[in-house]
Nucleic acid binder design. Sequence first.
RNA 1: GCGGGCGUGGCGGAAUGGUAGACGCAACGGACUUAAAAUCCGUAGGGCGCAAGCCCGUGCUGGUUCGAGUCCAGCCGCCCGCACCA
Length: 865
Amino acid sequence: MNTSARYDAQETEAKWQRVWAERRTFEASEDPGRRKYYVLEMFPYPSGRIHMGHVRNYTLGDVVARYKRAKGFSVLHPMGWDAFGLPAENAARDQGVHPAAWTYDNIANMRDELKAMGLSLDWSRELATCHPGYYEQQQKLFLDMYEADLVYQRESWVNWDPVDHTVLANEQVIEGRGWRSGALVEKRELSQWFFRITAFADDLLEALEALDRWPPQVRTMQRNWIGRSEGLTMSFEIVGRDDGLDVYTTRHDTIFGASFMALSADHPLASEAADRDPGAAEFVAECRRMGTSEEAIETAEKKGYDTGLRVRHPFVEGRELPVYIANFVLMEYGTGAIFGCPAHDQRDLDFARQYGLPVLPVVVPEDADAARFRVGDEAYLDVRNVVLANSRFLDGLSVDAAKEAVAERLESAGRGKRTVNYRLRDWGASRQRYWGCPIPMIHCGDCGIVPVPEEDLPVLLPEDVTFDKPGNPLDDHMAWRRVDCPACGKPSLRETDTLDTFVDSSWYFARFCSPRADAPVDETAIRYWMPVDQYIGGIEHAILHLLYSRFFMRAMGRCGHLEFDEPFSGLFTQGMVCHETYRDGDGNWRYPEEVTRDPSGRPVLAESGLPVEIGRSESMSKSKKNVVDPSSIIGRYGADTARWFMLSDSPPERDLEWTDAGVSGAWRFVQRLWRLVQELSVHAGEAGAGRPPAVPEGPDGELRRAAHRTVAAVGDDIEAFRFNKAVARIHEFVNVLGSWTPPGRAERSDEAAAVLREALEAVVQLIGPMTPHVAEELWRRLGHETLLADTPWPTADPELIEEESVTIGIQVSGKLRGTIEVARDSDEALVREAALAHANVRRNIGDRTVRKVIVVPNRIVNVVL
RNA sequence: GCGGGCGUGGCGGAAUGGUAGACGCAACGGACUUAAAAUCCGUAGGGCGCAAGCCCGUGCUGGUUCGAGUCCAGCCGCCCGCACCA
């Protein structure tokens, strides 16, 4: 055996990847006799190359998948492609390649890169959302949901880029301009398709409680996003008119502090005012022009326009409140109108100060003098330890009691209604794009909207499109658009909007259970595999993707496709991969591989020797060039090294700092393990020869205990996603093996050899999920004919895990003064005795009286003076 | 503004309220080598001391406790998410 040669990662990794593929080792099967485990990492967008975030994500998932396999589970661990989306169209426009060709090329390349990582994936289930086999089923789901009234079309305001002829998402609008064209974005009302996610708002909120294997912060973020609030919808009489003005409020206790009403610019009464008053019209137009970017909103001053309308205060005879159009009121929330109570709402206060409106405090601290209490520049928002004041029948009540009283009176007068409101809006899923799932709908002049009959599915994307004009190529493709109405036969037009790519990713995990089925999901398969036991991905999807997926399972359930609500019973959100940033003298970002050190250790550009400034470490991004290409790392060190480094230092939920030193450390570890196991294997017994003695004495016993303790600890750590600690435990054990010395001729025994073999096999098995190739190779070299990938996880003998003796610290008045070694679970009196006998402890006690001795078994002794 | 997280050696990080700094990286010393790389052995929070040992030390200030990195209160700093949501 050649033990001195270095481990050749390239050759060995390729070999075992081939073997696993040939033997279909990781293809999942529905085995009713075994417990199932579904591990899934968020599928990638096929951008063309994998990045370090992928490497981390898929390494974490693969550790879990391989570990669970070894633990005897029937594991499903599939991979696919989130393949629709704008970049393909941009590539088409800029490079003249068809989006499909570009996408499938990228997929082919990324598949090769992922395969080089040695992931235990079931590639037979691979799917791409841009494949007609996938989106046909999605179109079926869309039609089912339309049937179930979970999909509808309505007019809605969108950000319209007049140059690119496209709708922009809020995050694509930067300072009021299109992110690509730079054109001033307009608000336009377009007909859009929506998913009725709000139908499940309460359920989506309440069910979060039961998701106890989700990170708490993700649940909180979803809770905030859904934003349930309990309030009152109340109607104000408009002076001189028959109709009323409805507002929604959660602070009806402050009704006596109301000093104005405010309408959204999109409110019907605002439009009405604009029709008769050019000033109002100008103000409404100004509001619409106002950018939707965060910055614009944040810096915008509170502005309003008096419509001239007045409403009556519901409880104060003769008090009338002016009705303004205000730039800070949202049409989409509540009724699009509010009453303003400046004393107890910051926005209302800012507004009131601007327009000289009264500020009357009606909620004051319990111990305050209501007559003297004043509100300055900050609204008084406390709701605890406060009482109502200046509020007639509410005076002296708590906030809650006052709300109750107001609601009671208005409800019985028919002028109010307790209402639950949500921040969550229905999901606008229309995109005016080509490279997405066609919405299977037809617009008929006579019949209106007609669904495409199921037998006519899929509605395929036409291939002969061009991208030389801005806008959606489908709009111009009349041959594709023209179709006879399925209901009346009259010439009609297809819907040209395609679906938001979040739709594609809202059910792909269900499709993986039966990826080629002729229905969206196969009942038997989905019953066996779903829900996903462990989902792993970035925190950036904490809200939308996960919320949409949760909605989709409910919607699919209502359409009879499945019988569960929650898609992911366990969720893990990994941290990002970071790297230092570099700038040259001209302030340009530089790639890490362009930077080297000069003889004095200063960072310089490799090509010119000019100095480089090192910036803070940030999440790897192309724009800052602080990226390291995974393929070049894997090509140089091998996948095992990259994987080991990904797992070794940082806890997986935290950000990981990518460093060259860390990678070479991981590489050295792989090499060391390789040498060590082979060198020691010469002294180990034959594979499957004898069992080691139960609890051997001396060094053999120590080795055996260390092995079993490590097995137990690593298993626990993997279960708890503490991969960095698992790595540390393996390091410790390898250090133990490293200091193992071959016995002299006299001490050699079959039993000792068996102990060593057990230890070597344990370490190889423990690294199996993390560095699978070197582990598989060592397993073979240890004499096994079967694959490590098919070998059950080792079990730890509880008797061997317990330490025989423990070192306990001795404190005098809480300060450590020494340690003693005693037998485990020693008698307390004995420990106390030994502690008090310790020389340094006696010295520290001196001639003072021992008042008390606290003995914590196997832990510590504290001598209290 | 609201919500969440974090603050420990030169660095990444360990530590059921019980010996702070496991494990790794970087560093330093030594062995091997003509030399280097690789490898192996060793040192290592700061300070004082020949040593035994002592003092200080987990962002800051207090508190609870026999005992606090850990629990509580109040600050400071950093990061993330959401945000005119009435």
